[in-house]
Design a binder for these strands. Structure first.
Lengths: 222, 222
DNA sequence: TAGATTGTTAATCGATTAACAATC
DNA sequence: TAGATTGTTAATCGATTAACAATC
């Protein structure tokens, strides 16, 4: 029953497998080998089999993997069947964009409530989700079993709100602010979505390519 | 002059260093050792010195690193001083949220234009950025030197738009759609922002913790 | 049965950590 | 000068890849 700790690298690949399997299902593919799956994802067949073997035996020799069954296993591993509840803090632009476009249900989450400080928003609903005042947050958390807080507040209040969240039984924070919340002391799980980090990595690779091209051109001129 | 290829892991840490250094500057800290920087970021001093040494010698024995100077070096490594231009495709909720909230300039980018298919938007401006029709995209790319396309279109048209982009000299795509664009054939740089992958990783870690707690409780009961 | 493909063990490769001489 | 801390080389650790017996 006791499973060896699975490395973060493996965990980060699981959602990609899930998306690919969904895509295969959509296209009517019902079985796939580690060779073909690896090819489509840019991974080696070995790695794929190693990854899966962290959690059990999902394939069949000589056949491969059943796409639907494998998808379901991975969904379970990721906890998509647990009905985790989430709340969203900060109904600004990013908050609204998430409420409108991101389908929490598709990934096994229920967005139960949102919180903001703006009086005009409090008491209203947005996309079927009730919006409460930020001062009601503490009592709300006491009365409801909430796992995840989606943090979409302005930078300036992020630390403050985080303290309220961690102090009142939130398991994890999905952090969209630019603030680094990963404190060494806290036991709260933090998942950062730092747009800027992503863009800067892109920027590096574009720069690198430009330099390579420039070097090539310089060599050609001589 | 020729630098050994730097690993992706190192590149992904650079933006974190940058943010931390900005925070230190804000707090009036002007010098820092690899020991202290590592402590604040949850990394070993060794790793930090190794990372920097991929790009040069930025510290001083017995002193540490000058926060402002180091920040500037990292910014250059990431290409933040190159004035890369970007365009945004798809002025929906996510697109608008980015245009409103994400400060491209802060990270060295200029958002030069946006494109959409909706007639009501075409010809207007949003946050100072002109919006053109999607049919003008090809001629626009021919006339302007654009490095990066921010892809915030609906899933259904993502592939189509991508082909236009890659076929007309775009270096990189910052992909906010749920579609996996990393084609094995294309040479375009793709940086994916998959919200769902991030949330599912979070979901896994919450599940794991819940299981641990349940196991603990079960043991205590015996 | 023969061919295909798994799950797993062993080998390789790469990334992180430790150690230390150099030097501010 | 003495203490601190770098940059770098060597040692360790972990992740990926290769190989292959098991078996559908």
């Amino acid at each position: 029953m006791k499973r060896l700790k699975v490395s973060n690298n493996v965990i980060r690949r699981l959602p990609r497998y899930l998306r690919k399997l969904d895509e295969l299902t959509e296209n009517g593919v019902s079985r796939i080998s580690s060779f073909e799956l690896g090819h489509q994802l840019g991974l080696t067949p070995s790695q794929i089999r190693q990854d899966f073997s962290c959690f059990g035996e999902f394939g069949q020799q000589g056949y491969g993997y059943n796409v639907v069954a494998l998808r379901q296993q991975i969904a379970m591993i990721l906890g998509m069947d647990r009905g985790f509840k989430a709340i969203l803090i900060g109904v600004g632009n990013i908050g609204r964009a998430l409420m409108e476009n991101f389908c929490f249900n598709d990934w096994g989450f229920e967005l139960a409530a949102a919180f903001d400080i703006k009086p005009a928003l409090i008491g209203t609903e947005y996309k079927g989700v009730p919006i409460y005042g930020i001062d009601e947050l503490e009592s709300y958390l006491a009365e409801h079993q909430i796992s995840v807080a989606v943090l979409t507040v302005p930078k300036t209040v992020a630390i403050n709100v985080t303290e309220t969240l961690t102090g009142n039984g939130i398991d994890a924070i999905w952090n969209f602010t630019n603030v680094e919340l990963t404190e060494p002391n806290s036991s709260t799980i933090v998942e950062n979505v730092h747009f800027s980090d992503s863009l800067l990595a892109l920027s590096y690779y574009v720069s690198e390519r430009r330099d390579e091209e420039a070097a090539k051109a310089a060599r050609a001129e001589k």
